[in-house]
Amino acid sequence: MRKSDLIPIGEMARRTGLSVSAIRFYEDKGLVEPVRSAGNQRRFLRSDIRRVSFIRIAQQLGLTLGEIQAEFAKLPYGRTPTARDWKVISTSIRRVLDERIAELQRTRDRLDGCIGCGCLSLKKCALYNADDHLAAKGPGPRQLLAD
């Protein structure tokens, strides 16, 4: 590894648009792993710019840090991921996103009517939830929960 392959945390922050503390947080969560210089300063691989950028995008898409970490386990460490590496991740994330989109569409389509909360306080509840039959399926908005 060449010295030019490593960048300090400030440069990582500048390149990714994140604060230094956010990058340290991701480090604490095991999402990035800096190398330490002789003076014990953090140095990141240039390929970590893509990893941190991916974290930002994935979080905006609603993925949890645990889900992101599981996807990162599929990537090689120590080299810039290839298009094939990212394709593996994008295929997996596409499935998660499709499930979330379907859930959002169900919610959108039912939100004007009954949300299946079991409240029986609206006149429509007698139609959608006669005799509070949804209560047997558990608490909360049963018609919209995807379990």
Rank of each mutant, 00 (worst) to 15 (best):
M1A: 15
M1R: 14
R2T: 10
K3C: 10
K3F: 10
L6C: 10
L6P: 12
L6I: 09
L6N: 15
P8C: 01
P8A: 00
I9A: 06
I9L: 09
G10I: 03
M12V: 03
A13W: 03
A13I: 02
A13M: 03
A13E: 02
R15L: 12
T16I: 06
T16R: 05
G17W: 05
G17T: 04
G17V: 06
L18Y: 09
L18A: 15
S19M: 11
V20F: 04
S21G: 08
I23P: 01
F25I: 03
F25D: 05
Y26K: 09
Y26C: 12
Y26H: 12
D28T: 12
D28C: 09
D28F: 11
G30Y: 00
L31W: 05
L31F: 02
V32N: 01
E33W: 12
E33A: 15
E33I: 12
P34F: 02
R36E: 03
A38Q: 11
G39P: 03
G39F: 07
N40F: 13
Q41I: 06
R42V: 02
R42P: 08
R43M: 10
F44R: 01
F44A: 03
F44M: 06
L45C: 11
L45Q: 14
R46G: 03
I49V: 10
R50L: 13
R50E: 15
S53W: 11
I55A: 05
R56N: 12
I57H: 09
Q60C: 08
L61V: 00
L63D: 06
T64S: 14
T64F: 05
L65I: 13
E67M: 04
E67T: 02
Q69R: 13
A70G: 08
A73W: 02
K74L: 15
K74I: 08
L75V: 06
P76S: 07
G78I: 01
T80R: 13
P81W: 11
R84T: 14
K87L: 10
K87S: 10
V88A: 14
T91M: 13
T91G: 15
T91E: 15
T91K: 15
S92N: 10
S92H: 05
S92I: 07
R94L: 11
R94F: 09
R95Y: 04
R95T: 03
L97E: 00
D98I: 08
D98M: 08
D98W: 11
R100C: 02
R100Y: 00
I101M: 05
A102R: 00
E103V: 01
L104H: 05
T107H: 04
T107V: 07
D109L: 06
D109M: 06
L111R: 07
G113N: 12
G113S: 08
C114A: 08
I115C: 05
I115D: 10
G116S: 03
G118W: 06
G118T: 04
G118E: 04
G118D: 07
G118A: 09
C119F: 07
S121A: 15
L122P: 07
K124A: 13
C125N: 01
A126Y: 09
A126M: 11
N129A: 04
A130L: 10
D131N: 13
H133R: 14
L134C: 03
L134T: 03
A135R: 12
A136C: 02
A136K: 05
G138C: 01
P139V: 14
G140Y: 00
G140K: 00
P141T: 01
R142V: 13
Q143S: 08
Q143F: 15
Q143E: 13
L144K: 00
L144M: 01
L145Y: 05
A146Y: 01
A146R: 02
D147N: 10
